[in-house]
Structures are given as structure tokens and as C-alpha cells.
Design a protein around this nucleic acid. Structure first.
Ligand SMILES: [Mn+2]
Ligand SMILES: [Mn+2]
Ligand SMILES: [Zn+2]
Ligand SMILES: [Zn+2]
Lengths: 138, 138
DNA sequence: CACAAAGATGCAACATTGTTGCAAAAATAA
DNA sequence: TTATTTTTGCAACAATGTTGCATCTTTGTG
């Protein structure tokens, strides 16, 4: 159990519980690979499914993690990199979904292309998913 | 019931049935507004939910419609504009999700920004959703 | 440390989305 | 019209996600 996990929970002003530590540790281990609620359920043995949903919701609202709708119908979660906090996320990075290994990866290094919408649209969030075959699968 | 609907079904080499005509008509009426299976269920009175799922799957596989994962957890569907056909879709356009009126719109006129991924990724599909407030809601 | 207050968990019950198998009905071909 | 092929409608099921409520845990205070 890394210090990073306790640090993150403290900074988010969340109570430290066994479940929260284990779920967050799992997400830290997963790195830039986004994982589903179901994945976490299997990785954290004994965790209650409903509690897990609530933990993920809390983490997301606290700016610890962000969710990705990658088109598979299963919401994926990954750690936020830096300046995300309650209510305000800054995770406008690309996500890549590989149809072979079925993984979803945060591509924070790839620069997000600028989008020019008509000025009467208020842009709040960019959800960009590229689907295809990842570097390990071809 | 427009001729367009019968035309589309013919070109897709699909059998003409009451349900297919009504579902496709609904999608034509909806224009660039993407709608959910649940929406269609309420607009086409009497249609069976399971049949509807199968029709939507068939339409998508035939290149008549495309689906959008807008982040709401509900898959939305909209007509394909032109050269989509069995297996090969060409709907790499932006989608806008308005958090006020909760509508999802195809923005075919907005030019898609180019994305430069590391060359070892094989890009097959771009799923770009912008979330915010639409022109009618602010 | 002990205690109280606030918050998190675990369980049941439920809602929604989506899939599969199969018999009956409808559409098309002969 | 009749035969063949597809589609439909229903039941049954699976997966994801939400809500209410009692119980347990965490944390702040004396
Ligand atoms: Mn990400
Ligand atoms: Mn579209
Ligand atoms: Zn892969
Ligand atoms: Zn709107």
C-alpha cells in the first residue's frame, strides 16, 4: 500500500477506509490503463459491488479519477493526472480503445487537436476516443 | 411515410416490414439529432423492445445508421449521411451533447480536427463528443 | 482513552439496457 | 398459391447501475 494513496485521499479530504485504499491502490497500479467497475471488483477481493459504485462516484466527484465512455457500454475509470479537483476536471486528453485486447488507454502525451465550434456553443468537456488496434496488438 | 425510407431499405437490401419502416421513418424525422432506443420505443407506438434492438443492430450493420456513446450511458442513434455501407462506416464527425436539454447532435459541418497518434497505433474510428451547452440553451 | 457525531458500508430491492432461444407470423421467391 | 427464408414477439436471462435503510467504522472532542 503506497503512501501516494493515503496522500491522495488526504488531499481530497476523504475519510480513509479499507475499501477506498484498496480501490485507489488498484487504480494507481493500473496507471494510464482505464479499467471498469467489474475489473476492480475482481481485483479487490471481497469488495461489495454497491460500495464500489459509491466509491467510484465519490472519487470522481473529488477529482481523483475520471471516467471514460469508450463505446463498449462499460464505463472505464482512470486516475486523474494532476490539477483535477471537486467539480472541475481537466482530463481533456485522448483515449485509445483497442478492439483486439479490449483495453482503454489514456493518451496524455498526444496533443489534443483544437476544435472550432460555432461560437453559440459553450464547450465544457471534450470526450475523444480513438478506436483501432494498439501498438501491442499489430 | 416518405419514399426516402423505402429507398433506403431497398438500397440496404433489407426486407420491408412495418416496424423497420416506422423505426427508419422516426430516425429520418429526427435528422441530425441522435436518439436512444428508449426514445424510439415511445415514438413508434406498439413496437416490441427486443425487435427494436434487433432492427437497430441490423440498420447499423447495413450502414443506414450509426451509434453514438455520448457519455450518458444510453446509446444514441442517427442516420448516416452518405457513403456508409455494410461493415464500413464513415461517420467520423463531431457530436455535441448538451447537458441542459440532454440532446445529442451530429455536427457534420464542423471540420474534424486531425489527430497525430504515434505511428504504431492503427486508427480505425474517431469518436469525438463535445459536452457543454447548446445554442438553444444559453 | 472513551464517547458522540458524522460518514461509509453491506444488503435487499429495484430500474434500465441489452442479449439469446424458440415458436409463430410475415415477406419474398418459385 | 405454395414453399422458403426472415422477421417478429415473448419468455427468460445477464449486466450495469441506483436507492433506502440499518449497522458498522472513522474521526473529532473531552
Ligand atoms: Mn484518461
Ligand atoms: Mn452522428
Ligand atoms: Zn491492444
Ligand atoms: Zn441544449
Amino acid at each position: 500500500m503506497s503512501d501516494k494513496v493515503l496522500d491522495l485521499l488526504h488531499k481530497a479530504e476523504l475519510r480513509i477506509t479499507k475499501s477506498r485504499r484498496e480501490v485507489l491502490e488498484t487504480l494507481v497500479q493500473s496507471g494510464d490503463q482505464a479499467i471498469s467497475s467489474n475489473d476492480i471488483e475482481h481485483l479487490v477481493r471481497g469488495i461489495d459491488r454497491i460500495t464500489l459504485y459509491r466509491i467510484l462516484k465519490t472519487f470522481e466527484e473529488s477529482g481523483l479519477i475520471h471516467s471514460v465512455a469508450d463505446g463498449t457500454g462499460k464505463t472505464k475509470y482512470a486516475l486523474c493526472s494532476h490539477e483535477c479537483n471537486g467539480g472541475e476536471h481537466h482530463d481533456d486528453h485522448l483515449h485509445f480503445y483497442c478492439r483486439i485486447c479490449e483495453t482503454t488507454t489514456c493518451l496524455e502525451k498526444v496533443q489534443l487537436p483544437p476544435v472550432r465550434l460555432p461560437s453559440d456553443y459553450l464547450v465544457e468537456e471534450k470526450r475523444f476516443v480513438i478506436a483501432g488496434v494498439c501498438k501491442d496488438c499489430h
